[in-house]
Simulated scan of single mutants.
Amino acid sequence: MSLEVPASQQSRCAVHPEQPAGGTCTRCGSFICADCATSVPGLGVRLYCAACAARPEVNYLEALRQRYWGRRDEWAWVVAGVTLLLCVGVAAAFAQWGLSATKQSLFPLVLLLPVPVGVAFFLGKRWARHALLPTPLVMAVAADVLYRDGRFLFFLCAIPGLFIALRIHRDARNQLFFRLPVSSGSLKLLWDLRFNNPLARQALHFGFSAVFMPLLAPVALICGAVALTRVDLKATPPIDRRGQAITGIVLGLVSPAVWGFALLPVLDRWLSSMVYK
Protein backbone atom coordinates (compact mmCIF):
# COMPACT_ATOMS: atom_id res chain seq x y z
CA MET A 1 0.00 0.00 0.00
CA SER A 2 1.39 3.40 -0.98
CA LEU A 3 1.47 6.18 1.63
CA GLU A 4 2.06 8.89 -0.95
CA VAL A 5 -0.61 11.58 -0.95
CA PRO A 6 -1.99 12.37 -4.42
CA ALA A 7 -1.03 15.78 -5.74
CA SER A 8 -4.69 16.76 -5.98
CA GLN A 9 -5.14 16.20 -2.25
CA GLN A 10 -1.98 17.96 -1.06
CA SER A 11 -2.36 21.22 0.84
CA ARG A 12 -1.64 24.27 -1.26
CA CYS A 13 -0.25 27.67 -0.37
CA ALA A 14 -3.00 30.24 0.17
CA VAL A 15 -1.09 32.84 -1.85
CA HIS A 16 0.52 30.55 -4.44
CA PRO A 17 -1.98 27.75 -5.18
CA GLU A 18 0.44 26.13 -7.60
CA GLN A 19 2.94 25.56 -4.76
CA PRO A 20 2.55 22.82 -2.14
CA ALA A 21 2.24 24.07 1.42
CA GLY A 22 5.18 23.49 3.70
CA GLY A 23 3.42 24.55 6.89
CA THR A 24 0.90 26.93 8.39
CA CYS A 25 1.14 30.49 9.64
CA THR A 26 1.58 30.66 13.39
CA ARG A 27 -0.94 33.48 13.69
CA CYS A 28 -3.73 32.95 11.16
CA GLY A 29 -3.22 29.26 10.38
CA SER A 30 -3.27 29.66 6.60
CA PHE A 31 -1.12 27.34 4.51
CA ILE A 32 2.21 28.82 3.40
CA CYS A 33 4.84 27.65 0.95
CA ALA A 34 8.59 28.04 1.23
CA ASP A 35 8.46 31.39 -0.59
CA CYS A 36 5.81 32.80 1.76
CA ALA A 37 7.25 31.53 5.03
CA THR A 38 8.57 34.53 6.96
CA SER A 39 10.40 34.57 10.25
CA VAL A 40 10.28 37.51 12.64
CA PRO A 41 13.44 38.62 14.49
CA GLY A 42 13.31 37.70 18.14
CA LEU A 43 10.53 35.12 17.75
CA GLY A 44 12.66 32.03 17.28
CA VAL A 45 11.70 29.46 14.66
CA ARG A 46 8.04 30.42 14.37
CA LEU A 47 6.96 31.08 10.79
CA TYR A 48 4.30 33.47 9.55
CA CYS A 49 2.75 34.42 6.27
CA ALA A 50 3.93 37.73 4.84
CA ALA A 51 0.78 39.57 5.90
CA CYS A 52 0.94 38.45 9.53
CA ALA A 53 4.70 38.98 9.76
CA ALA A 54 4.14 42.65 8.94
CA ARG A 55 1.49 43.18 11.62
CA PRO A 56 2.62 45.30 14.61
CA GLU A 57 1.23 42.84 17.16
CA VAL A 58 3.49 40.14 15.67
CA ASN A 59 6.55 42.05 14.49
CA TYR A 60 7.90 44.31 17.22
CA LEU A 61 10.12 46.06 14.67
CA GLU A 62 7.08 46.99 12.62
CA ALA A 63 5.41 48.21 15.79
CA LEU A 64 8.47 50.37 16.44
CA ARG A 65 8.32 51.73 12.90
CA GLN A 66 4.68 52.71 13.26
CA ARG A 67 5.27 54.18 16.71
CA TYR A 68 7.78 56.73 15.41
CA TRP A 69 6.46 57.12 11.85
CA GLY A 70 6.08 60.84 11.14
CA ARG A 71 6.69 61.86 14.77
CA ARG A 72 9.32 64.49 15.48
CA ASP A 73 12.48 63.19 17.06
CA GLU A 74 14.98 64.85 19.37
CA TRP A 75 17.04 66.14 16.46
CA ALA A 76 14.06 68.03 15.05
CA TRP A 77 13.68 69.91 18.32
CA VAL A 78 17.44 70.52 18.54
CA VAL A 79 17.50 71.99 15.04
CA ALA A 80 14.45 74.12 15.86
CA GLY A 81 16.10 75.38 19.04
CA VAL A 82 19.33 76.29 17.26
CA THR A 83 17.34 78.05 14.53
CA LEU A 84 15.47 80.10 17.13
CA LEU A 85 18.72 81.03 18.88
CA LEU A 86 20.22 82.19 15.59
CA CYS A 87 17.23 84.42 14.92
CA VAL A 88 17.39 85.90 18.41
CA GLY A 89 21.14 86.46 18.07
CA VAL A 90 20.79 88.27 14.75
CA ALA A 91 17.96 90.43 16.08
CA ALA A 92 20.04 91.35 19.12
CA ALA A 93 23.05 92.18 16.94
CA PHE A 94 21.07 94.49 14.69
CA ALA A 95 19.39 96.11 17.68
CA GLN A 96 22.82 96.82 19.15
CA TRP A 97 24.79 97.89 16.07
CA GLY A 98 22.18 98.63 13.45
CA LEU A 99 22.31 97.73 9.75
CA SER A 100 24.64 99.43 7.31
CA ALA A 101 26.19 98.63 3.95
CA THR A 102 29.60 97.58 5.28
CA LYS A 103 30.65 93.95 5.14
CA GLN A 104 31.34 93.80 8.84
CA SER A 105 27.85 94.99 9.74
CA LEU A 106 26.35 92.45 7.34
CA PHE A 107 28.25 89.64 9.01
CA PRO A 108 25.34 88.66 11.35
CA LEU A 109 23.25 87.92 8.26
CA VAL A 110 25.38 84.80 7.79
CA LEU A 111 23.61 83.36 10.81
CA LEU A 112 20.30 83.63 8.97
CA LEU A 113 21.40 81.30 6.15
CA PRO A 114 20.40 78.07 7.95
CA VAL A 115 17.06 79.46 9.18
CA PRO A 116 14.97 78.32 6.15
CA VAL A 117 16.59 74.90 6.33
CA GLY A 118 15.94 74.66 10.06
CA VAL A 119 12.28 75.62 9.71
CA ALA A 120 11.75 73.17 6.85
CA PHE A 121 13.55 70.46 8.82
CA PHE A 122 11.25 70.96 11.79
CA LEU A 123 8.22 70.79 9.50
CA GLY A 124 9.40 67.46 8.07
CA LYS A 125 10.33 68.55 4.55
CA ARG A 126 12.57 65.87 3.11
CA TRP A 127 14.76 68.24 1.12
CA ALA A 128 15.82 69.87 4.39
CA ARG A 129 17.56 66.65 5.51
CA HIS A 130 19.87 66.87 2.51
CA ALA A 131 20.23 70.65 2.70
CA LEU A 132 21.34 70.37 6.32
CA LEU A 133 24.55 68.58 5.29
CA PRO A 134 26.25 71.44 3.36
CA THR A 135 24.78 74.21 5.53
CA PRO A 136 27.81 74.57 7.88
CA LEU A 137 30.16 74.74 4.90
CA VAL A 138 27.94 77.30 3.13
CA MET A 139 27.95 79.45 6.26
CA ALA A 140 31.74 79.24 6.45
CA VAL A 141 32.10 80.29 2.80
CA ALA A 142 29.69 83.20 3.24
CA ALA A 143 31.50 84.36 6.38
CA ASP A 144 34.82 84.12 4.54
CA VAL A 145 33.50 86.35 1.76
CA LEU A 146 32.49 89.04 4.24
CA TYR A 147 35.44 88.75 6.59
CA ARG A 148 38.50 87.02 5.15
CA ASP A 149 40.70 87.48 8.20
CA GLY A 150 38.86 84.68 10.00
CA ARG A 151 38.94 82.08 7.23
CA PHE A 152 40.68 79.38 9.27
CA LEU A 153 38.37 79.88 12.24
CA PHE A 154 35.23 79.80 10.08
CA PHE A 155 36.09 76.50 8.43
CA LEU A 156 37.30 75.05 11.71
CA CYS A 157 33.93 75.83 13.28
CA ALA A 158 32.17 74.24 10.30
CA ILE A 159 33.76 70.82 10.92
CA PRO A 160 31.71 69.93 14.05
CA GLY A 161 28.58 71.12 12.26
CA LEU A 162 29.30 68.82 9.34
CA PHE A 163 29.75 65.82 11.64
CA ILE A 164 26.54 66.61 13.52
CA ALA A 165 24.61 67.04 10.26
CA LEU A 166 25.95 63.70 9.03
CA ARG A 167 24.96 62.08 12.32
CA ILE A 168 21.44 63.45 11.98
CA HIS A 169 21.21 62.34 8.35
CA ARG A 170 22.10 58.74 9.24
CA ASP A 171 19.93 58.52 12.34
CA ALA A 172 17.21 55.88 11.98
CA ARG A 173 14.86 57.68 14.34
CA ASN A 174 15.15 60.84 12.27
CA GLN A 175 14.49 58.89 9.08
CA LEU A 176 11.25 57.62 10.59
CA PHE A 177 10.24 61.20 11.36
CA PHE A 178 10.64 62.02 7.67
CA ARG A 179 8.71 58.86 6.71
CA LEU A 180 11.68 57.30 4.97
CA PRO A 181 12.24 53.54 4.61
CA VAL A 182 14.41 52.08 7.36
CA SER A 183 15.96 48.63 7.19
CA SER A 184 15.16 45.93 9.72
CA GLY A 185 18.75 46.01 10.92
CA SER A 186 18.55 49.73 11.69
CA LEU A 187 15.22 49.23 13.44
CA LYS A 188 16.75 46.45 15.52
CA LEU A 189 19.60 48.75 16.57
CA LEU A 190 17.10 51.46 17.45
CA TRP A 191 15.04 49.03 19.51
CA ASP A 192 18.14 47.75 21.30
CA LEU A 193 19.15 51.30 22.12
CA ARG A 194 15.80 52.46 23.47
CA PHE A 195 13.90 49.43 24.72
CA ASN A 196 16.28 46.52 25.31
CA ASN A 197 16.86 47.01 29.03
CA PRO A 198 18.16 50.60 28.83
CA LEU A 199 18.70 50.63 32.60
CA ALA A 200 21.57 48.18 32.11
CA ARG A 201 23.26 50.64 29.80
CA GLN A 202 22.78 53.37 32.39
CA ALA A 203 24.35 51.11 35.00
CA LEU A 204 27.37 50.70 32.76
CA HIS A 205 27.66 54.45 32.23
CA PHE A 206 27.36 55.21 35.93
CA GLY A 207 29.85 52.44 36.69
CA PHE A 208 32.50 53.95 34.45
CA SER A 209 31.70 57.41 35.83
CA ALA A 210 32.16 56.07 39.35
CA VAL A 211 35.79 55.33 38.51
CA PHE A 212 36.33 59.10 38.48
CA MET A 213 33.44 60.14 40.75
CA PRO A 214 32.95 57.46 43.44
CA LEU A 215 29.78 59.15 44.68
CA LEU A 216 28.04 57.69 41.61
CA ALA A 217 28.86 54.13 42.68
CA PRO A 218 25.56 53.59 44.57
CA VAL A 219 23.63 54.72 41.49
CA ALA A 220 25.51 52.18 39.36
CA LEU A 221 24.76 49.45 41.90
CA ILE A 222 21.05 50.24 42.03
CA CYS A 223 20.68 50.53 38.25
CA GLY A 224 22.62 47.30 37.70
CA ALA A 225 20.61 45.36 40.28
CA VAL A 226 17.27 46.51 38.87
CA ALA A 227 18.45 45.85 35.30
CA LEU A 228 19.35 42.27 36.22
CA THR A 229 15.80 41.65 37.41
CA ARG A 230 14.50 42.80 34.02
CA VAL A 231 16.55 40.33 31.99
CA ASP A 232 14.16 37.86 30.35
CA LEU A 233 15.56 35.84 27.46
CA LYS A 234 12.22 34.07 26.98
CA ALA A 235 10.29 37.27 26.42
CA THR A 236 9.09 38.35 22.98
CA PRO A 237 11.37 39.99 22.02
CA PRO A 238 14.04 38.85 24.50
CA ILE A 239 15.32 41.37 27.04
CA ASP A 240 19.05 41.05 27.68
CA ARG A 241 22.10 43.26 28.43
CA ARG A 242 22.98 41.10 31.42
CA GLY A 243 26.69 41.74 30.81
CA GLN A 244 26.29 45.51 30.99
CA ALA A 245 24.29 45.27 34.20
CA ILE A 246 26.90 43.03 35.84
CA THR A 247 29.73 45.29 34.68
CA GLY A 248 27.97 48.29 36.19
CA ILE A 249 27.58 46.46 39.50
CA VAL A 250 31.23 45.38 39.55
CA LEU A 251 32.46 48.89 38.79
CA GLY A 252 30.12 50.27 41.43
CA LEU A 253 31.68 47.94 44.00
CA VAL A 254 35.30 48.26 42.93
CA SER A 255 35.50 52.02 42.41
CA PRO A 256 34.87 53.05 46.06
CA ALA A 257 37.32 50.40 47.23
CA VAL A 258 40.03 51.68 44.90
CA TRP A 259 39.41 55.26 45.97
CA GLY A 260 39.44 54.17 49.61
CA PHE A 261 42.82 52.47 49.31
CA ALA A 262 44.19 55.46 47.40
CA LEU A 263 42.94 58.06 49.88
CA LEU A 264 43.53 56.10 53.09
CA PRO A 265 47.26 56.99 53.38
CA VAL A 266 46.49 60.65 52.67
CA LEU A 267 43.75 60.67 55.29
CA ASP A 268 46.02 58.92 57.77
CA ARG A 269 48.79 61.50 57.32
CA TRP A 270 46.29 64.33 57.65
CA LEU A 271 44.87 62.92 60.88
CA SER A 272 48.35 62.34 62.25
CA SER A 273 49.34 65.92 61.52
CA MET A 274 46.21 67.15 63.27
CA VAL A 275 46.93 65.04 66.36
CA TYR A 276 50.59 66.03 66.73
CA LYS A 277 50.11 69.62 65.72
Rank of each mutant, 00 (worst) to 15 (best):
L86D: 08
C52M: 03
C52N: 03
Y60G: 11
L84Q: 04
E62A: 12
C52K: 04
A80K: 02
W75I: 14
E74K: 05
T83G: 15
G89H: 12
V79S: 07
A50F: 04
L64G: 06
E57P: 04
A80S: 12
A54W: 05
C52A: 06
L85T: 11
G89F: 13
W69D: 10
A76E: 10
V58P: 00
L61G: 10
W77S: 12
L86V: 01
L85M: 14
L64P: 02
E57K: 06
A50R: 15
Y68K: 13
A80E: 04
L84K: 06
V82R: 01
E62M: 09
V58Y: 02
V88F: 12
A63V: 00
G70E: 08
Y68D: 08
R67D: 09
N59V: 07
E74C: 03
E57W: 01
Y68M: 06
A51G: 00
R71Q: 13
L64T: 11
G81D: 08
N59F: 09
V79N: 07
E62T: 12
L61H: 08
A54P: 00
Y68I: 02
R71S: 07
V78A: 15
W75K: 12
Y68A: 10
L64K: 11
R55L: 13
G81R: 08
A53K: 05
R65A: 10
W75E: 07
G81Q: 07
Y60A: 10
C49Q: 09
C52Y: 07
E74G: 15
V58S: 01
L61Y: 07
W69L: 14
A80P: 09
V82M: 13
C52P: 00
R65D: 02
D73K: 10
V79D: 05
G81S: 14
A50N: 06
R65S: 11
A53H: 05
A54N: 11
G70K: 06
T83Y: 05
V58K: 02
A53D: 03
A53L: 09
V78H: 06
V79K: 03
R72N: 03
L85E: 01
A54Y: 02
Q66N: 08
R71W: 05
L86P: 00
W77Y: 15
A80Q: 06
R72F: 04
W75M: 14
Q66V: 01
C87F: 04
A50H: 12
W69S: 08
A50E: 13
V78E: 02
C87N: 12
W75Q: 09
G89D: 09
Y68T: 00
E62D: 09
L64F: 08
L61T: 09
E62Q: 14
T83W: 02
V79A: 06
G89Y: 10
L84N: 01
V78I: 15
A50M: 11
R71C: 01
A54I: 07
L86E: 08
L61P: 01
V78M: 14
G70P: 04
Q66M: 08
G70A: 08
A80H: 03
G89Q: 12
L85H: 00
L86N: 10
E62W: 00
W77R: 14
L86M: 13
V82Y: 07
C49V: 13
Q66I: 01
Y60L: 03
L61Q: 09
G81A: 15
W77A: 12
E74N: 07
R55P: 00
R71D: 04
R72D: 05
R65H: 05
A63G: 14
A76M: 05
L61S: 10
